Simulated scan of single mutants.
Amino acid sequence: MPLSEHEQRMLEQMERALYAEDPKFASALEGSGLRTYTRRRVYQAVAGFLLGIALLMAGMVAQQIWVSVVGFLVMLGCAVLAVTSWRKVPKPGEHPADGAHFRRQGRPRRSMMERIEQRWQRRRDEQQGGM
């Protein structure tokens, strides 16, 4: 359930106060958990990729095609996981893109559907006010 405008403003005020009171603590909290989690997933994907290479080679040596195919699929899946996880890692000092954290640029990013709904609501309000 999305936050109301009032709740978003209150959250931004609390985050600003936290940044003003203890900027070092606030910057330590802002993305380290996500960064650690995604970095760990990348490392797991690399380990899985190496396991896939081992399966591929073992299948070739044992002349078992299905083992080689499984190894290739493991390699492919782990490569996709590593690339998608790596793209999600926030840079140090950068805010995650989910809009829940304070942004120095101002208001949080909204999805396209939220913007369309707001425009629709504004038009409806204008039409009702003009009657």
Rank of each mutant, 00 (worst) to 15 (best):
D98A: 05
G59C: 00
G93Y: 02
A62N: 09
V46W: 02
I65E: 15
Q63C: 05
V67S: 01
I65Y: 14
V80S: 11
R16H: 09
R35M: 03
L18A: 09
Y43R: 15
R103A: 04
G130Y: 04
M57S: 14
K24N: 08
S27N: 14
P108I: 04
M60W: 12
V74C: 06
R40Y: 11
H95F: 04
A47M: 11
L11F: 02
F102C: 03
H101L: 11
M1V: 14
V83K: 07
S4W: 00
I116T: 08
F72D: 05
G130L: 08
R35K: 04
M75T: 05
Q44K: 09
G31M: 00
L18H: 01
L29V: 00
G99F: 02
A17C: 08
G71V: 02
G33M: 09
Q105L: 12
K24L: 12
S4Q: 03
V42K: 01
L34K: 10
W86K: 10
R124E: 02
V42T: 04
V67R: 01
M14Q: 09
P96S: 06
E114W: 01
T84H: 09
G52C: 03
S32D: 09
L3N: 07
A97S: 13
G93P: 04
W66S: 14
L3V: 03
I116H: 02
M14H: 11
G93W: 02
R41Q: 15
E21I: 10
L76D: 10
G71T: 08
E30K: 06
A79D: 08
Q127R: 12
V70W: 11
L51P: 00
R115N: 05
D125T: 01
L81I: 04
G99Y: 02
K91C: 08
G59E: 02
L76H: 10
L11I: 03
A62G: 05
R109P: 07
A58D: 05
G48N: 14
G93A: 05
S85Y: 03
E7W: 00
E30L: 07
L11N: 12
D98S: 07
A82T: 06
C78N: 15
M60E: 13
R122P: 02
A28L: 11
V69G: 08
R16W: 10
L3E: 10
I116M: 09
Y37R: 11
A47W: 06
L56Q: 13
E5A: 13
S85A: 15
R122L: 08
T36Y: 11
V42R: 02
R109S: 13
R124A: 04
E15P: 02
L55V: 01
Q64I: 13
H95R: 14
R107W: 14
M57E: 13
R123A: 01
E7L: 04
A58E: 03
G48S: 13
V61W: 07
S4T: 15
M131F: 10
G106E: 01
V89S: 04
Q118W: 09
E30Y: 01
G129N: 13
V89M: 12
P92F: 09
V70I: 15
R16V: 03
L50G: 03
R39M: 14
P23T: 05
